[in-house]
Design a protein around this nucleic acid. Sequence first.
DNA 1: ATGTCATCCGATGGATGA
Length: 258
Amino acid sequence: MRIATFNINNVVKRLPNLLAWLEAERPDVVCLQETKAPDALFPAQALEAAGYGAVWKGERTYNGVAILARGATPVPTRRALPGDPADAQSRYIEAAVNGVLVGCLYLPNGNPQPGPKFGYKLAWFDRLIAHAGELLATGVPVVLAGDYNVVATDLDIYRVKPLTTDALQQPQSKAAYRRLLDQGWTDAVRALHAGEQVFTFWDYFRDAWGRNAGMRLDHLLLSPVLAPRLRAAGVDAWVRGDAGASDHAPAWAELDWP
DNA sequence: ATGTCATCCGATGGATGA
């Protein structure tokens, strides 16, 4: 099973890009973020025609997540991250696909920092860690995939800028990601590319793609049952170079499953 | 501080988020 995560940055606007990538790479499972479409406008029919069943949770203009499965329909288990009923932002969806529980997440960006948005980011991270711990306790195979909006280490950014105010690089953000990993999750791309600079995001600003001034923000975390089954992992960086591309490229993990 | 891309509201651009 090959599972991918892709911040599509508007699934309606970039449907041609999404379909081109699906046809070229044929991932089995896809987690999408920033679909930026209300549920009624999610392009389910076009994806079905491309061979993918889907579950989605969107909203107008912002956020929005979805899980696709090739030749199957994911069985939804959640459409929100537990822990705050007042949180109306569409940032988490979870579904079972071929015996794997897939959590698809879009962690808050958190800028500007400091401020209420950064507070929301850290609170959301705490809720994710709590939920992830409960998933681990069940012992079922889980992949938590998405845009974590964190530069985890200095290796995950093209150039370290000391004393930056960027919410993605704050010590609290990095510490939260570290706490999540320390529960027992395996960062699939990092596990197979230790010490290598691998990026999943290149800003639209300042020709970041042309200069390879990227960051690694999109991750697939594997629960302990799945970690020994990891066979390959990488990033389909070519997607970022296409016309009308998202500012992210898909990251993926190939699992010996089932 | 800058820069790009896109959307929204509601106006023919400015504010916003990323």
